[in-house]
Design a protein around this nucleic acid. Sequence first.
DNA 1: GGCACACTAAAGTCCTTGCTTAAGTGATGC
DNA 2: GCATCACTTAAGCAAGGACTTTAGTGTGCC
Lengths: 117, 117
Amino acid sequence: MLNQLEPLDRVFHALADPTRRALVERLSHRSMSVSELARPLPMSLPAVMQHLQVLESAGLVRSVKVGRTRNCALDMAALGQANRWIEARRCEWDARLDRLGDYLETLKGENDDDQSR
Amino acid sequence: MLNQLEPLDRVFHALADPTRRALVERLSHRSMSVSELARPLPMSLPAVMQHLQVLESAGLVRSVKVGRTRNCALDMAALGQANRWIEARRCEWDARLDRLGDYLETLKGENDDDQSR
DNA sequence: GGCACACTAAAGTCCTTGCTTAAGTGATGC
DNA sequence: GCATCACTTAAGCAAGGACTTTAGTGTGCC
């Protein structure tokens, strides 16, 4: 990774970890505090914090400190970015299949011409 | 990462690298040989091979050897998997917003009741 | 005030990644 | 046959990731 970390790098990297996906999954139901998120997980609280920092720097999670607790909420925008990249690939893929289909149609047409001659 | 690598882990991890996304992007236009994929990239051919192996083990790319060249093609199925995971999060998020909306409606209704008394 | 609670920061360890170079292997073309 | 082309394998290495433990910091409650 020679170049600056692009947003998509951070988003996909954040989602590549099962613990972080589990956090996102639970936050998609409702927002929670750090310790509430950490409670069911088989690791230390600092570890969970670090995962949350990864998610936050990817833009997937936003958090605000209220008193001594930090409340974490999902931010769908970053997920939307990832989604759009994937959708763009599908579009190009479909366009490719269309071109292939057109090409085959052309071949078929030429073949018909040959036969009608 | 204590547990076995889940499919989604591999897919998102594969997509987290800009070089690999570029490969997927070009393969979404048309399939290519390894050296054709490697030509524009500023790294050695073994490095590109390793990226392709990551993509292939994630199920994003399939390849067949024809003579002495290996032809690589995109496999949309794995991308679909990633897409579905993201969509599922969005659904849950929307459901959460609906519940919130219902709750606010309920409050409003109760408030109206109070006023009509 | 003072104790507990909810984080936060720092340092250290071990494993994985993303490259590199060098040395194969196995078709293709003359 | 033999050089060339298109990979393939292996080894090595610097950097980054996923934890840990230990030691703070700032709030809330009695």
